[in-house]
């Protein structure tokens, strides 16, 4: 479904992605890990067409993504920072994204799930960070997209909402979707991920299951496995 070949990107003199290639053919949860500034978000943004790569290409369903914006119909994206126009109401922004995408959406169940009913008529500028993140989650999951990209989805969420989010992710996985996720919360990654791609200095340092990563470094959990890689 997604083929990434030789993606390169630098910002000025800083080489963020050196040579990234991998392939995803079947559904499942893929965690993209790496230290701060290792290019996780940059990679996701290249996949979404928000950052333009210096070299290499990404194919989605055998088609080069730089040629057309249509492929984004198939991708749901949860950005790292949730900010919206301050004077729009929650109801309006949900309606707007549905309107812009022009596809069937089902926000009602998600609104109920995250208890956002009472916020629907509030201005987005007056919401707390966590509530905005919930709105963001509704916007991402209200469409039935075969690929979901989640960039630090847990930021600002309370434990109850976190459990609900995990359920959503697992349901999406059960439906055979491809879920790309970045997170610094290793327990979450360990719990969810089928596969781990570890980025270090612009290259893929490791690609495999979380178990393989642990046994390779001889660590009990993912957190220590990552620490072992970074310290060696």
């Amino acid at each position: 479904m997604i083929t990434v070949s030789n993606i390169k990107k630098s910002f000025g003199r800083l080489q963020v992605l050196d040579d990234i290639s991998f392939k995803v053919d079947k559904g499942g949860i893929i965690a993209i890990l790496g230290p701060n500034g290792s290019g996780k978000t940059t990679f996701l943004k290249i996949l979404l067409g928000m950052v333009i790569a210096d070299g290499g290409k990404i194919l989605y369903q055998e088609k080069d993504i730089s040629k057309s914006h249509e492929y984004r119909k198939h991708i749901g994206y949860l950005p790292q920072i949730a900010r919206f126009p301050d004077n729009l109401k929650v109801r309006e922004v949900i309606h707007m994204i549905a309107d812009v995408r022009n596809e069937p959406s089902n926000p009602e169940d998600l609104i109920k799930l995250f208890g956002l009913e009472s916020f629907l008529d509030k201005n987005l500028g007056n919401l707390s960070g966590g509530t905005r993140q919930k709105v963001n989650i509704v916007l991402t999951f209200m469409f039935d997209t075969p690929v979901i990209v989640l960039d630090e989805p847990t930021a600002g969420l309370d434990p109850v909402s976190l459990i609900k989010l995990k359920d959503l992710i697992n349901k999406a996985k059960a439906a055979g979707k491809i879920i790309l996720i970045t997170s610094h919360i290793m327990s979450l990654v360990e719990e969810l991920a089928d596969e781990v791609i570890f980025l270090l200095e612009g290259n893929i340092y490791f690609k495999g299951t979380p178990q393989e990563l642990k046994s390779r470094t001889g660590s009990e959990d993912l957190e220590h496995a990552i620490a072992a890689i970074l310290e060696s």
């Binding site: 067409g49 928000m50 249509e70 991708i75 126009p85 301050d86 812009v100 995408r101």
Partner: peptide, 15 residues
């Protein structure tokens, strides 16, 4: 001020 929101729009299937 609308930078993040623009980013959200950029991820949608729109030119």
């Amino acid at each position: 001020n609308s930078r993040e929101f623009t980013e959200l729009l950029l991820a949608q299937p729109v030119k």
